[in-house]
Design a protein around this nucleic acid. Structure first.
Lengths: 257, 257
DNA sequence: CGACATGTTGAAGCGGTTCAAGTAGGGTGG
DNA sequence: CCACCCTACTTGAACCGCTTCAACATGTCG
């Protein structure tokens, strides 16, 4: 079974250039030869089925993964055995870079649906980064984006009432689907209500009620996982954009203490 | 004024090797020559006074900063003009790496007390990373740690009642001071109640009440900014450790959907 | 079809916010 | 140096947003 699989993979081994996600995944100006080098280290794996782990918290870190299709949730497990979802990953995104410092995964990654990924062995990637400055810059940039995303999510959790949290989540999803060439106003949630509630730090019942409320208000239509946004503006108004405009020059009134 | 300053800086230009924070700041095995290269690009600046900005959200990104003494808060400003503190930075920590992808700062950094920092111009740092593999690895590791920290904080905000949030904050501070050679049980909060409340996503009054409560319970003594921890174990018990043990092998009951 | 997971909706309870009032420091100007 | 002011902090009490509990509906899979 694995044998035949391997053969296939060899030919699939999809030349990054031909990948529709290439622009998302590796959006910097790489030289022709550099792309070949990158292609050579990329491995395909058999798809990860819904509910399967791509990796688990605590496992040794050997590779980062680029999502090709499907989606995954990343979550930590607290000492009391509770899971906390920290992010949702869509096609074109890299996962696992957070494991670098400890050399072991600090999150588990579980597929929310059948999901295929490219595997980039980290040792080889690290070497390649020393050769290709554009690659180094890109990986750094991706990690910086992840930090930015996390900070945004922290802000949502710390400041916003539940209504705005869900709106932010939906608006964010909408943007990300749009960036991938899908509809920004109609899409399927890959997360369950439970997962959404967990991610947004609220009770499942609250998520359910909010969806109903949004629907009553004419903001969207929702049926199970299918969502159609009717009033994008209203949704955006509810959302909190982090990193708004630079604050106006205030005098020293703000002492920061 | 700047002239005489510059001369001083030249001699201060403190050889990373001699810096007491070196182990925290650059804890990898760099070669002798590499350290010299690093030293050459590091600039000192005049100390940042309490309430002053080290940089502001939206400003172009030119350098990262290593805290030498003092402390700073990093915060985003939402579109409605509210600040949300996302992190507190102590000596030996790097700030600003989150600006890489946008090439502009996505947080403001404000000193909580008189604070001195080393400035590392990013362009030169980036080049140096291509020459020194240990440096690249270290910077990646630092960013990965930052992601880990943020995920931990997200978990605290999403899951924990206020009591445990404050306990986590204090336990974390205690550990970090310890790592810097200070007392783990007695230290000064550089943040105001307001800042702590903001960071932990709760009301100032709640912070105040919790400090009183902890004191009544004999967990700690607190007077204004001075904190003395009396019962470390009890505090740890309240804290949430993220990234606990790997979950036991569960059957497919967890479908993740 | 039956069984179990997932999602919805209602009602009660409570954790934490908000409002309000008062205390204590720290800095400034007289 | 003290009087003053302003900000930071504390404490109490009322309120409310959200959770929790409970019951039911709907899908899904063996």
């Amino acid at each position: 079974m694995e044998k035949t699989r391997v053969v296939k993979l060899e030919e699939i081994r999809t030349r990054c250039q031909k990948c529709s996600l290439f622009q998302l995944c590796m959006p910097m100006g790489l030289e022709e030869g550099d792309l070949d080098k990158l292609d050579k280290i990329i491995k395909r794996r058999r798809p990860v089925e819904k509910g399967e782990f791509l990796y688990r918290i605590g496992e040794p870190f050997t590779a980062v993964f680029a999502v090709r299709s499907g989606s995954l949730k990343a979550f930590t497990t607290t000492k009391d055995g509770q899971d906390q979802i920290v992010s949702l990953h869509l096609p074109g995104e890299l996962m696992g870079l957070d494991a670098i410092s400890k050399q072991q995964h600090i999150c588990s990654a579980m597929a929310l649906e059948t999901t295929s990924v490219c595997e980039l062995p980290y040792e080889r990637l690290e070497k390649l980064m020393m050769e290709i400055s554009g690659l180094q810059r890109h990986i750094l940039s991706l990690m910086s984006e992840e930090i930015q995303h996390d900070q945004c999510h922290m802000t949502v959790l710390a400041r916003l009432p539940v209504e705005n949290r869900l709106a932010s989540f939906l608006a964010n999803l909408s943007e990300r689907y749009k960036a991938r060439g899908f509809s920004a106003i109609e899409f399927n949630l890959s997360m369950s209500r439970n997962d959404i509630a967990n991610l947004l730090g609220m009770a499942v019942e609250t998520v359910s009620r909010l969806f109903s409320q949004f629907q009553d208000q004419g903001l969207l239509q929702v049926e199970r996982k299918h969502v159609k946004i009717l009033d994008v503006e209203a949704l955006r108004a509810l959302q909190s954009k982090c990193g708004g405009q630079p604050p106006l020059e205030k005098k020293s009134s703000n002492t920061g203490s």
